[in-house]
Design a protein around this nucleic acid. Sequence first.
DNA 1: ACCCCGATCGTA
DNA 2: ACGATCGGGGTT
Length: 168
Amino acid sequence: MTKLTRDFYNRPTLEVAQALLGKVLVFDNYHAIITETEAYIGLDDPACHAHKGRTKRTEVMFGPAGYSYVYLIYGMYHCLNFITEEEGIAAGVLIRGAKLITEPYLNLNGPGKLCKFLQITKHHNCIDIVESDNFYVIDQNVTPIFKATPRIGIKKGIDKLWRFESIT
DNA sequence: ACCCCGATCGTA
DNA sequence: ACGATCGGGGTT
């Protein structure tokens, strides 16, 4: 049960997105095993928020790995991402699903549902999850089998198989 | 200042 | 299949 270090996040995003499956998200008193992720990678990925360049919202995506990126979508839901790759490369992993392994053992299947339950909001944007003591990810040495599919809910970039889902 | 769109979800 | 709901980004 070791906390993931910056080196874990500071590498190719597809590797991180796959490696996050089976890891445990710790947020306040909740522990949830990550079951579904998506990669969003840089200026060449039309589905990536930062693909048109730096804005106030996407600023954190250009920063160093190991930070949170939380944004509001559809005016109603928040989505949680972890920033990957070296500073200057705008990339991250969307946490689409996780199962609580503490009470009340809910399956938080969906990025909006996950943030709603954990009460993650834009106030949790740009937090260093390597240094935080109530918002981080740990390795419990579980390596699930997973499948790769197109990302959900996007219109551009559906040709990429950048969504990863545990099947064990 | 205005307009359009969106990395969703629950209901039908 | 569809509506709820509103911030961000591009345009004027």
